[in-house]
């Protein structure tokens, strides 16, 4: 491909791109195009029509740009969007997209950095509400990451692996995430996905005790599996340390009373995690 685009095209597309990314105005209570902020040169380049001026024609593209990207974030973070409300989420999303405009052909990628941005953008004046939204965005992100994760077969240990088990490190399946909820947010998320007509959701009450879950993708779809708190801790430690080291760390974090049953429980949890296909390999390089 030898031909280069004419220089004026780059300038034209820079002006048009700036117009597309002009933030929508929220002052009226609905999202409207701020046409007065458009580059006058671009408006002069476009033709007026009897029913709408050039800026109003350009505004169609401006609105489409924002609503398309908002809809990707709404789809990627459905629980957070319904708890927070689309209007409030869009305000955070607009700031995020201004700071991180889409750069690749995969539109889904725009959501990749949303969770850390969202965490930094939350109002700290209402701690309970903030904690609930932080948990919500973690859960949404976990489901999203599991859906997009590489597909690898689960690790099925052989007898010959036994000698290396304590010194080796179990590598978590890419399509596995461990999350904890203090309110019944996973069930709420499932209910919301089943009924897209629900635009807003009430925050569920606090659970008597937090519940941990493994979210894992199967051939038949993504499932959530309830796990005990210490089991979740073990799975998380196993993903970061050698098996022997993880077991030591778990033991040291337990109470004396818990330690009595720990060996039997650890064996059962380890066996279950392998049976459920939570690992993809045993790393032996230390």
């Amino acid at each position: 491909m030898s031909r280069s685009a004419p220089g004026w095209l780059a300038d034209f597309q820079a002006r048009f791109g700036n117009m597309l990314r002009t933030p929508l105005d929220r002052a009226s209570g609905t999202l409207t195009a701020a046409t007065a902020a458009y580059d006058p040169q671009l408006c002069a380049e476009a033709l007026d029509r009897p029913l709408s001026c050039a800026a109003e024609r350009l505004a169609v593209y401006n609105r489409q740009y924002w609503f398309r990207l908002f809809s990707v974030l709404h789809a990627g973070f459905p629980l957070t969007a319904r708890l927070m409300g689309y209007w409030e989420l869009n305000a955070v999303a607009a700031n995020y997209l201004l700071a991180h405009p889409p750069g690749g052909w995969d539109i889904e990628q725009i959501a990749d950095g949303f969770r850390p941005f969202f965490q930094g953008a939350l109002d700290e004046s209402a701690p309970d509400w903030r904690l609930a939204l932080l948990e919500s965005v973690r859960i949404d992100a976990a489901y999203r990451e599991v859906f997009r994760a590489e597909c690898l077969p689960p690790f099925r240990p052989l007898a010959s692996d036994a000698a290396d088990l304590l010194s080796g490190q179990l590598v978590p399946l890419p399509a596995l995430r461990i999350v904890e909820e203090h309110r019944a947010l996973l069930a709420l998320r499932t209910a919301l996905l089943a009924d897209p007509s629900i635009a807003t959701a009430e925050l569920p009450p606090l659970l008597v005790r937090p519940q941990a879950w493994a979210i894992v993708r199967r051939e038949s779809g993504t499932v959530r599996i309830p796990i005990e708190a210490r089991e979740a801790e073990l799975l998380t430690l196993l993903g970061r340390h050698s098996v022997g080291d993880a077991l030591g760390r778990l033991e040291s974090s337990c109470t004396a009373e818990e330690r009595a049953d720990l060996p039997d429980q650890v064996r059962a949890w380890l066996a279950r995690s392998i049976e459920l296909g939570f690992w993809c390999s045993l790393r032996r390089d230390g």
Partner: peptide, 15 residues
């Protein structure tokens, strides 16, 4: 559909 490193994810016209 994009320019200057930004993908606009829209089908955009030119002169």
């Amino acid at each position: 559909t994009g320019a200057h490193g930004v993908s606009h994810h829209d089908l955009l016209p030119t002169p």
